[in-house]
């Protein structure tokens, strides 16, 4: 069906004269880092504060049992630049995927990831372990503040809050349904 006849059946085509007025006095966390780390724990994510100079060292520690480490950033430890491959299905054996978050949300432990340079969106969900690097001072209190920071012209972006999980069998929480079984967030201290 074409758009005009489709919208004609629906009607309601008038342009709204007023914007929706929303007044919410939302919570602001005073100690953002404490609140964020607490939320991460609640959603089964390990959150660690890491000095910038120690990042590589910490990643090595984290990945000592891993063979395939993918990232689009040139860490010495990576075994694969995921942007170099053609078919994302080749990422199936990735143990650790290292990505960068833009900011974290204190109320729920979600991290906003929007990497324009990244070609394969699969790197966020296909790996066994997802490591997100995040600036320590990039935390916001709630989702309201979060969306103020997101540019409406984005192409793709994702809030990740914890490993993949399901409770579809008798309400028992199982971590690792389809996506990453482990998620770690490094809060980078300059």
């Amino acid at each position: 069906m074409n758009i005009d006849s489709f919208i004609k059946t629906i009607g309601k085509e008038s342009k709204p004269s007023l914007d929706i007025k929303i007044e919410i006095d939302f919570e602001i966390f005073e100690d953002k880092e404490k609140a964020f780390l607490h939320s991460l724990k609640n959603v089964a994510v390990e959150g660690v504060v890491v000095k910038k100079a120690k990042i590589e060292e910490k990643i090595k520690e984290l990945s000592k049992d891993y063979k395939n480490i993918a990232s689009i950033y040139p860490f010495s430890i990576r075994t694969l630049n995921s942007n170099d491959i053609k078919d994302p299905k080749e990422l199936n054996n990735v143990d650790l995927s290292i990505v960068k978050g833009k900011f974290g949300v204190c109320e729920n432990g979600a991290v906003w990831i929007e990497e324009e340079e990244n070609i394969h969106r699969a790197i966020y969900s296909i790996c066994k372990h997802l490591l997100i690097l995040l600036d320590r001072d990039s935390l916001v209190s709630t989702m309201h503040e979060a969306y103020e920071r997101i540019d409406p012209s984005l192409s793709y972006g994702i809030f990740i809050s914890g490993p993949s999980k399901t409770a579809d069998i008798e309400q028992s929480l199982v971590i690792g349904a389809h996506g990453a079984k482990f998620v770690t967030v490094f809060l980078i201290d300059e």
């Binding site: 432990g109 979600a110 984005l154 192409s155 793709y156 972006g157 490993p163």
Partner: peptide, 12 residues
Amino acid sequence: QPITSYTTHFNS
């Protein structure tokens, strides 16, 4: 839950 594990914005 405070939010779903994945909240994905497919804009292109």
